[in-house]
Design a protein around this nucleic acid. Structure first.
Lengths: 215, 215
DNA sequence: AACTAGTTTAAACACCTGTTTAAAATAGCG
DNA sequence: CGCTATTTTAAACAGGTGTTTAAACTAGTT
């Protein structure tokens, strides 16, 4: 295996578990059994390594996600929100074939990127992979046309939060659930449980919220 | 103002904005206009300072939260989930009286603590303030008795994720929303929008999930 | 005024950080 | 082989980290 890939494989697991700031290049290179300077030689800097780690997953995920969503948008029957969110299951679980524990690693990375490094990842995703967002918004709009653009905006970000945050700590949660309820569960099981939750959340009835000035 | 409080006031803002790992003691002490060694003198270590920052908020929040939840549990009418989650609004917004921007600072800290420092905060909260969790579970159980304990467990963690994650990036989201939709919004407005979402999520119809072994 | 306990201070400690350097090793190709 | 270009290596760099030290300072009390 190439040095570049050895670094990427070691980096994404460490980044997912300990965050970008919390992982040093020395940890990565010794885990990958390569020289310290290899990171700067092959990637230029730590920041570029982070981008490369994310891109490797996003390039694998985003085409599958886009085709799944466009399939839903073009269907004859109006899709339910549950169907819209279910469109994520396949592409996300495919990351497990792409790399061992790929799904949860990627979702953890997503969570790290959102909170570490002050919004750098949000910029990265929205500028590098804008179609994922717009297709998703479009699909939700078809499934629930009464929602205003602003309400979709907020509810989609709530959904992002639910997914990303849950998956960031999914391993710990699965452990607790197994101890307390003797229920064997894996990452796919968690996804199956979270879909009805977010679908119901996005599909919540519209409530009037008075503007600030009238309160 | 005492040196101890000057440190706490500087620390919680910096911790909220840049994370625990991302904030150095030198940043904190220079922001607070105190000597570097003051942190170790007054708190012992950086880790103890983090605990002190969180405790200051939790001690202000948890009694109000517990009484609000017990009020709901003892009411004659069965409460709706919307009412259960609305019980959080008052205690959370009270943190704004306690300290400027206290509500969003605290919720950001909560998010930091969950993802920084590998589950240390979850341990801290569940061991130091266990009543908040059990009271909350009890209230949800009254409002939606059909939910099994395991389903409540998962849905409450989804909810934690939604709230904490949204609030971690609430400032950025509010900015975007103001630009895109000309809608003035503050932290209270975000809370009002997220309550229907999580209430609907927790109240989602129960779906049968086949155990792993049968799939 | 003198002593004491609590607090603040500047300096140093040992260690870790990302990055760069220049020499050594390796591979590819005519 | 001999030459070149790519890659790997160990060492050093400059700067940042949390923590400790011992001296200086500040009340408060007798």
């Amino acid at each position: 295996m190439s040095t570049k890939n050895k670094i990427l494989d070691a980096a994404d697991v460490l980044f997912a578990n300990k965050g970008f700031n919390g992982t040093s290049l020395r940890e990565i290179t010794s885990q990958a059994n390569v020289n310290l300077a290899a990171v700067n030689y092959h990637f230029g800097s730590k920041k570029e390594l982070i981008k490369a780690v994310m891109s490797r997953y996003m390039d694998e995920l985003s085409p599958r996600l886009e085709s799944a969503l466009s399939l839903i948008c073009q269907a004859e029957l109006k899709p339910t929100l549950h169907e819209v969110f279910s469109a994520f299951i396949g592409p996300l679980l495919h990351l497990n074939d792409f790399k061992e524990n790929g799904t949860s690693t990627f979702l953890q990375l997503l969570g790290r990127g959102y909170t570490d490094s002050q919004g750098f990842l949000r910029w990265f995703l929205t500028t590098q992979y804008p179609d994922v967002f717009t297709n998703f918004t479009k699909a939700v709009n078809i499934a629930y046309p009464e929602l205003t653009a602003e309400e979709i905006f907020w509810r989609l970000h709530f959904t992002m939060g639910t997914i990303v945050f849950t998956m960031s700590s999914s391993e710990a949660l699965i452990d607790i659930a197994q101890n307390d309820f003797d229920n064997e569960l894996d990452i796919a099981g968690v996804i199956e449980r979270v879909i009805p939750y977010v679908a119901a959340g996005v599909g919540a009835p519209i409530t009037n919220i008075e503007p600030l000035s009238l309160r």
